[in-house]
Design a protein around this nucleic acid. Structure first.
Length: 173
DNA sequence: GAGTTTGAAACT
DNA sequence: CAGTTTCAAACTC
């Protein structure tokens, strides 16, 4: 299957084909057990509003991905936590990334990468789940008032878990 | 749009 | 564990 470097399908496919291709669900059926499937797949898998990538039908000019994230990774093949999609457990699709391997056809590489990440930090993917609290930021220069700050970006005040310098984000001790 | 800044992730 | 490097997003111009 040929795709653009960004992981989406080229325009030679009809809008309907693009819709179908980009709507491919995760390969849960290739996994051995439900628990494994849950672990290896998106943390949003149980959420009703989890949206897989899609393109609007019959109107390419209006094609807006409905994913919760869009990355532009260039060097990491979208297989490291730098990649927002990978970190959220989502496949890329409609992103601006290059040489993307966070796609169903690279499921083996994707799984290896995920295993590697989990080896380093078993909680790595749990942080992307909705109800899991932010651990705390380490900002030094942004005053925790820009979206570089994980707390600020999520609309939260910094707290005692943060190790930020010069925090202006209503630190609650 | 290009270049800079930033802090998390990754590496040593 | 600490320091450094790499990375991609946020930001500025």
């Amino acid at each position: 299957m040929d795709r653009t470097p960004g992981g989406s399908f080229p325009n030679k496919y009809s809008p309907f084909s693009q819709f179908c291709l980009n709507s491919l669900s995760p390969l849960q059926q290739s996994l051995q057990s439900p628990s494994q499937a849950m672990d290896l797949d998106s943390p949003f898998v149980s959420q009703q509003n989890h949206a897989q990538p899609f393109l609007q039908l019959f109107d390419n000019s209006q094609a807006i991905p409905a994913k919760t994230c869009v990355c532009k990774c260039r060097k990491t093949f979208c297989l490291k936590l730098y990649c927002d999609c990978f970190a959220r457990g989502e496949y890329c699709g409609g992103c601006g990334c290059m040489e993307c391997k966070n796609l169903p056809e690279f499921e083996n590489e994707r799984r290896e990468a995920k295993t590697f990440v989990l080896d380093r930090n078993p909680e790595a993917f749990r942080r992307s789940e909705v109800q899991v609290p932010i651990v705390g930021c380490n900002c030094r220069r942004s005053g925790c008032l820009k979206k570089y700050c994980e707390c600020y970006a999520n609309g939260k005040s910094c707290n005692s878990s943060c190790r930020c310098d010069g925090c202006l984000n209503a630190k609650q001790m």
